[in-house]
Nucleic acid binder design. Structure first.
Lengths: 198, 198
DNA sequence: TTTGGAACTTGACGATGGAAAGATCGACGC
DNA sequence: GCGTCGATCTTTCCATCGTCAAGTTCCAAA
């Protein structure tokens, strides 16, 4: 990972760090084409490599999309952490912040969000993906517990609003809300999330 | 549409009602394969017709999926109406019932639900699809207004919980809730929905 | 320096969606 | 009854896709 290939190297037979380059290319492809038009061969072209090269690192398309989804959950947690860092320390505010981070992520990377939450293509038996998805779930669980929530009903309520807002906004179904000026939008979303807190 | 072809007719060159037959086949294909593996040629085979036959009735895959999505919104409204008919007449109970119908639909036809809410493939410029999607939106708007809701925040709150619950449950992400015995599940879901009512 | 394995390429296969061109059929005018 | 014309459906062809098998290039350890 350290001292990777610089930009002005002459083309070599061995790429150097194809695995990472393919992930970058795949994310770009996903963002531009969406999951439903995602093409492995285009990803390979994007990375300047033959169409069969990805197989060696990821097995098949599913392998690549699985790795991408796992990476997605990592960023997903980062987005929530970023909002939480800006919020006051009480449990309710932290929970609201996590929800806003959830929504931030969906709006910033809608195709990746869809890959993670509305696609059959990643392999949810994969250990790495499971770990990161589970980490995201546990983060939610802890946040709900901190606000005094108990049981699946409290957890489901918080998850559902956050996820529902994220999914609808990312799909362009709640443009009246999305179109609000930044702070007003945040306030409106925060107000909605607060309604379901225990 | 009346006196359509009976089951025991000999195979004819002209199908009789291919348009309808293709929609039925397409829904089966969608339910079995999902959107991401949906194959137009398999739909044609299912309907006992050449792979190019659908083109004449729907143009291309997008046309067929668009028609399917429009049909989906019709059923979606029916599912909500069914729950509303069983509920008491006060506005809040009606709103909760609509939410339960929303969830019923997503659980009964997850792939169709995903086509309608998480796919780029239908053509949302299509007039028929727009009409039905809009009808569903208006139904929600009226329900929220009846409970005294005003503005995008009240509407967004109700839509988000219902949609979030539906999407997460359909994706198998809230199995602890889904696994509850029928009445207990309904009660839990109703409790969650009530939290966001104005 | 040799050599074995990892990284990558090339070429092939079956499946897909769409376009083009031909075959069949029903309905309407005469 | 008889054409004929447009709608319906089939056949054939093409580019693209994902995967597989076999070959090539390169690195690094022995």
């Amino acid at each position: 990972m350290t001292d990777g290939p610089t930009l002005d190297e002459k083309p070599r037979y061995h790429h150097g760090d194809l695995q990472a380059a393919l992930l970058v290319a795949a994310e770009a492809e996903l963002a531009e084409a969406g999951i439903e038009a995602f093409s492995l061969r285009r990803v390979a072209r994007r990375a300047g490599v033959s169409h069969a090269a990805p197989a060696h690192h990821f097995g098949d398309v599913q392998g690549l999309l699985t790795a991408l989804a796992a990476e997605g959950y990592r960023r997903f947690l980062q987005a929530q952490a970023a909002r939480e860092a800006e919020a006051t320390g009480d449990a309710a505010s932290q929970m609201v912040a996590a929800g806003l981070g959830y929504i931030d992520f969906a709006l910033a990377r809608p195709a990746l969000f869809r890959l993670m939450f509305s696609s059959d293509r990643p392999d949810y038996g994969n250990a790495d993906l499971l770990v990161w998805a589970d980490r995201a779930y546990q983060h939610l669980e802890q946040g709900v517990a901190a606000t005094g929530g108990q049981g699946i009903e409290d957890l489901g309520a918080v998850w559902a609003v956050a996820h529902g807002l994220a999914d609808l906004l990312a799909a362009g179904r709640l443009d009246a809300l999305r179109g609000l000026p930044g702070p007003a939008r945040d306030a409106a979303l925060a107000g909605i999330i607060r309604r379901v807190l225990p």
